[in-house]
């Protein structure tokens, strides 16, 4: 059966992602050197940066899918967008939590309303709002249309989050570049970025499966009613 082959393929991808994250964590914690200025706690970079990347990647995918939906009205684009928001919200919340854990021992505080932190919190709330919009609309087509509009408008904040550290004065440091990180720390960072991207792919495929099943159930019960 087609569905079962796909489920099995997803399981292999899931196992690959799991293995990659295991290697990434071991490398980050036991192989990479500590930082000269921050000491051991700097290792939080290896999870904070990848979760932030996945959050933004996810919202970018939502943005593209929302535009595609409005152009083509294919419910599959809406299903991918919905899946992307849910996963993006999970990873953005995780980014904020990890950032807070990193801030306390280095900056000396858990939280401050600096532009980077504030715009990130707004980003999280906006996409939680997207999920609320979906609960509000009953008719699947209307729901998809409204969601697509929110998915496009919400993306305005994503580049603002990224550029906030260059546009305004912040406590948060500007983005690191390949030159500002020593090579023996850059490689484990790249590995973790790749590993988290695999996790993202796996979660998206599974979340899409769920959206597919939900849509089928919604259609069938609507016919029966």
């Amino acid at each position: 059966m087609e569905r079962e082959t796909r489920d099995r393929r997803h399981r292999w991808l899931g196992l690959a992602a799991l293995a990659a994250v295991v290697v990434g964590t071991v490398w980050a914690l036991f192989v990479a050197p500590p930082d000269a200025a921050q000491g051991e706690v700097q290792r939080l970079m290896y999870v904070h940066v990848p979760t932030a990347w996945i959050g933004m990647l996810s919202f970018f995918v939502v943005f593209v899918m929302s535009i595609l939906y409005l152009v083509q009205r294919d419910p599959r684009w809406d299903m991918i967008a919905h899946s992307g928001v849910e996963i993006g919200v999970v990873f953005t919340a995780l980014t904020l939590a990890l950032g807070s854990l990193w801030a306390k021992p280095t900056w000396g505080i858990w939280w401050t309303w600096d532009p980077r932190l504030t715009t990130t919190a707004i980003m999280l709330i906006i996409y939680v709002g997207y999920l609320a919009v979906r609960g509000f609309a009953q008719d699947p087509e209307k729901r998809a249309r409204w969601s697509a509009v929110v998915g496009i408008v919400a993306f305005v904040d994503v580049p603002i989050v990224y550029l906030s550290v260059t546009w305004w004065r912040t406590l948060h440091q500007p983005p690191s570049t390949a030159r500002s990180i020593a090579p023996e720390m850059l490689w484990p960072l790249f590995l973790n970025l790749a590993a988290f991207t695999l996790v993202y792919l796996y979660l998206m495929l599974r979340r899409y499966r769920l959206a597919e099943a939900e849509r089928q159930l919604e259609e069938e019960t609507a016919i029966g009613r």
Binding site: P33, P34, D35, A36, A37, Q38, G39, E40, V41, Q42, M45, P105, T106, W107, G108, I109, T112, L171, Q173, P174, P175, S176, T177, S180, I181, A182, E184, M185
Partner: peptide, 23 residues
């Protein structure tokens, strides 16, 4: 009433002679 440290975006291992910074 609140003191916050701003750090750079540069990360590098400690030199051979120096110990990593201690918390």
């Amino acid at each position: 009433d609140r003191l916050m440290v701003k750090h750079s975006n540069e990360y590098k291992p400690p030199e051979d002679s120096e110990m990593p910074a201690e918390m």
